[in-house]
């Protein structure tokens, strides 16, 4: 589904992603872990087409298409979704109107007509229930005055509504209390099917107990320096990242790419 090869990207002239490789197939869940500042959010931004992120090398194919060549909205319409680490508040845009607009834009892109009001409401109710998302929140302005946790839940609610092929969750767990985490995870697990895939960016192994990944990757200084199964997440939780930093210095010195 997603095939990233030797991706390099910089912000304001500073190289952040330094040759990153990642293969994600339909049905898979990948976790990306790594210390602060290692480039996790940058990867998410580059994949979704945020401006000011300059791709300086490599490629990212999504379902065979050059993802990096598409506008942000077309990437979304093709089925890429990012649950933001810091969702934006947009006072004056109602959550519902926003979702309806987004859904219809995606449908129109695929040559489908707008969703009937009734159908839309049905979908809304269904997904609200799935994520135990407060109807009052759904009716408010987009993220305006939402708590950190509410914003994160709204991201997952949008994910459920838009039903993308590839969902990237950027630190969705931060700001969620344990109950919310359980609800969100349960929701995500229900959304999983053989046709979609998830990239879950997180610091903590905790989330991965609920959403069990097929692969865990460690992103460090703009590269994936280690990949493994969910046990790697446990190991990271126990040992921290320092041992990897040592490792990576050696690798850098030896100028060898770590195998994924």
């Amino acid at each position: 589904m997603l095939s990233i090869k030797n991706l390099k990207a910089s912000v304001e002239g500073k190289e952040i992603l330094k040759g990153l490789d990642l293969e994600v197939k339909a049905g898979e869940v990948h976790a990306i872990m790594g210390p602060n500042g290692s480039g996790k959010s940058t990867l998410a931004s580059v994949l979704t087409g945020k401006e000011n992120y300059e791709v300086t090398g490599g490629q990212a194919l999504f379902e065979g298409k050059d993802l990096l060549d598409l506008s942000p909205e077309d990437r979304a319409r093709e089925g890429v979704f990012l649950a933001f680490q810091y969702p934006v508040e947009i006072p004056g845009v109602s959550n519902i109107n926003f979702l309806k607009t987004a859904l219809n834009e995606i449908r129109n892109y695929k040559g489908l007509p707008n969703l009937e009001a009734k159908e839309f409401l049905k979908l809304l109710k269904e997904k609200q229930k799935l994520l135990e998302f407060d109807a009052a929140l759904a009716n408010r302005s987009l993220n305006e005055g939402f708590s950190g946790g509410e914003k994160k839940r709204n991201e997952i609610f949008q994910l459920a509504m838009l039903d993308p092929k590839l969902a990237i969750l950027d630190e969705t767990d931060s700001g969620l209390d344990i109950d919310a985490l359980r609800i969100v995870s349960r929701g995500v697990n229900k959304l999983r099917n053989g046709k979609n895939a998830f990239i879950i960016i997180t610091h903590y192994q905790r989330l991965l107990e609920y959403i069990v990944p097929d692969y865990v990757h460690v992103l460090y200084k703009g590269q994936i320096v280690k990949s493994g199964t969910k046990d790697l997440a446990l190991e990271l939780e126990e040992k921290g990242y320092d041992w990897l930093k040592e490792d990576s210095k050696e690798t850098e010195a030896a100028d060898i790419m770590l195998p994924r």
């Binding site: 942000p72 909205e73 979304a76 979704f81 933001f84 845009v93 926003f98």
Partner: peptide, 21 residues
Amino acid sequence: FYLKSRGIGEEKARALLIHAF
């Protein structure tokens, strides 16, 4: 960007933000 990242095109996104304003 937030609006576009949900599939909303440039023109519609701008219109939404102006209505919001």
